[in-house]
Design a protein around this nucleic acid. Structure first.
Lengths: 347, 347
DNA sequence: CTGAAAGCGCTTACAG
DNA sequence: CTGAAAGCGCTTACAG
């Protein structure tokens, strides 16, 4: 058996591809990066070589040349563990693809927010991603902006004019869910609010009210219960709703954690879900598929939003380095209504 | 204001550090990487320069030279979404630090497992991380091994001799939890099993039985309810336990998802937690802090285990490339008993 | 103990 | 449309 030629076994480089295709590394690079300015024949030869050799670009090499050495910070406070995990997944994945380093800082109060920002700056971050609820904090945004650090806001429902954002349309999402329940035949629909300080919570409630009004169905005050996005608040809100003399046949919870609380109460009262009560949520975090029956909810593509945030931030950083500037981009990602087993026509 | 000298603003390189300290880049590199073979004075000058300039090594550059271009695969099946998220967080974080690319493949049945393995191989992975339950599948391990792909098993409770693993001691963890409940004064302790096909589930049950026996407390058969690690199975197991004429004062659930189910049932029956019933779990996934009251559980450092798995795999890959080989390392991480509000002395 | 040279894999900027 | 040269930031291997 002949001696292997490759120095590091398993590593197919762009030089191997170029040699195999009989072109220069530059031409190979151009084909691999989708440039159109390559003769058809060469392009095909390179593509064949990529396939035959199983070539995959080494991103460390690429990013060394392109992005240079960017570092992005993530500054968060008061997160839902599940939500943050999922977001970080996207952020880390895209960072790894882009050869970018990620620094994470947590802060609690306003004071620790300053300290956390300071630490990020000292670590030399070139930009910062702001998950909710910090994305809605003008102070935080301003403080970073003053230091010349670009910011991307994730999942804000009230995007600031000049701060790029990645979000879904909370209003339309909550509207779609309300309409879905109406279409199933529900008229007595309870609603559990999220933390009123969060902009998405406000919009979700507003969409619910508007859609019910358009359908000509009055919503009794008692059918809208306060909540804080926590499981615990879901428990007490659901008790409140289900103890009403005329109880709702469906409950629309402003997030999945509260829906889990609502389902716990319903299970406890011996109510069959969805036979006697439909429960729906919002976000589609892992808890939605943990519950039984599995939860109908609005899917927010959190991981994809994390990726998009990194990409947007990187563009900003490159622009800034190149001395360019452009208008803040607001990316609205698609939500999806995911029908599972927790919802059905009223019994 | 004078023109900035740096080509890419914000990027402090090792050359800047070296110049600032008046040494060669090599000496700077040695200090930064903790080599001891540097004169004290030079070391201190470099360290000062690092501090003053806020230097942070660019990992893309480093990994290009050291690891070369490693790629690690993650092959999973049938995961708890929350667990997998947390594990991936660690895997991605460490990969990003090490400048390694990560490829993820999911598989369902045995057939799709072959296909997924094939895809990973075609993508040129240099090693594979196997989360549970695939880490306990000899076929999967063998198939990869035959192709010369190193494997690291995560969270198996029955590590194979020659496959490196990262895990906690499930037996000792479950023992500690049982003893904790005993020390609180509980004698009527129910147990909800995990999926009996998973090795950790078997050990956790065994530890419970042994510890109870040592305390001289008989465990009625009806006090051990079958489960599958799912919320749903937790619901029915808890119903079974709580409907007993002489019901337990505490329930030890083999994971957090089932504890969530058990708490839902207890809430429904109007049982106060922890006053009338203590509920404890295992794993400390995000659900543990989502519930109310928050869940006492055994913390498995899942994110750290993901990081450790990447590091172990990278060592294996480097060894293999260098033609070295050594014994499989089995890393046992520390668990922790996290006391929260779901457990107390029997009422 | 210290450093000059070379190169990891890739792409930018330039020349044809 | 194509390619030779240079360099991103870092460290290995070699020489002193």
């Amino acid at each position: 058996m002949p001696q292997r030629k490759r120095k590091t076994p398993g590593a197919v480089t762009i030089l191997d591809v170029a040699k195999h295709a009989g072109v220069s590394p530059m031409t190979a690079s151009r084909v691999i990066n989708g440039s159109t300015r390559v003769a058809v024949e060469l392009r095909e030869r390179v593509q064949a070589a990529v396939r035959e050799l199983g070539y995959r670009p080494n991103l460390a090499g690429r990013s060394l040349r392109t992005t240079g050495s960017a570092r992005v910070g993530v500054l968060y406070s008061n997160p839902s563990a599940a939500y943050l995990n999922e977001l970080m997944l996207g952020i880390l994945e895209q960072s790894s693809l882009s050869g970018v380093q990620v620094l994470v800082e947590k802060c609690a109060g306003m004071q620790s927010q300053r300290a956390a920002t300071q630490r990020l700056l000292e670590a030399g971050v070139d930009g910062v991603i702001l998950p909710p609820p910090l994305c809605d904090s003008p102070q935080t945004v301003r403080e970073l902006d003053e230091r010349g650090i670009p910011v991307v806001a994730v999942a804000t429902a009230a995007p600031m004019q000049d701060v790029p954002s990645v979000r879904i349309d909370d209003y339309q999402g909550a509207r779609a869910m309300t309409r879905y329940l109406l279409d199933l035949g529900h008229t007595r629909i309870g609603f559990i609010q999220g933390d009123p300080k969060h902009t998405p919570a406000q919009l979700r409630l507003q969409a619910f009210r508007d859609t019910m009004a358009e359908a000509g169905i009055a919503v009794p005050d008692a059918y809208v219960a306060p909540g804080l996005f926590t499981y615990r608040s879901g428990l007490s809100a659901a008790r409140q709703l289900l103890d009403l003399p005329q109880r709702p046949t469906a409950i629309f919870c402003s997030n999945d954690d509260m829906a889990a609380g609502a389902m716990a109460v319903a299970h406890g009262m011996g109510l069959r879900i969805p036979g006697e009560l439909s429960v729906v949520g919002f976000d589609d975090t892992p808890v939605a598929t943990t519950l039984w029956p599995e939860l109908t909810t609005i899917r927010q593509p959190v991981t994809a939003m994390g990726k998009a945030a990194v990409s947007a931030l990187l563009e900003l950083i490159r622009d800034r380095r190149a001395g360019r500037s452009r208008e803040a981009a607001h990316q609205v990602m698609k939500y999806a209504l995911v029908r599972r087993q927790s919802s059905a026509a009223p019994g």
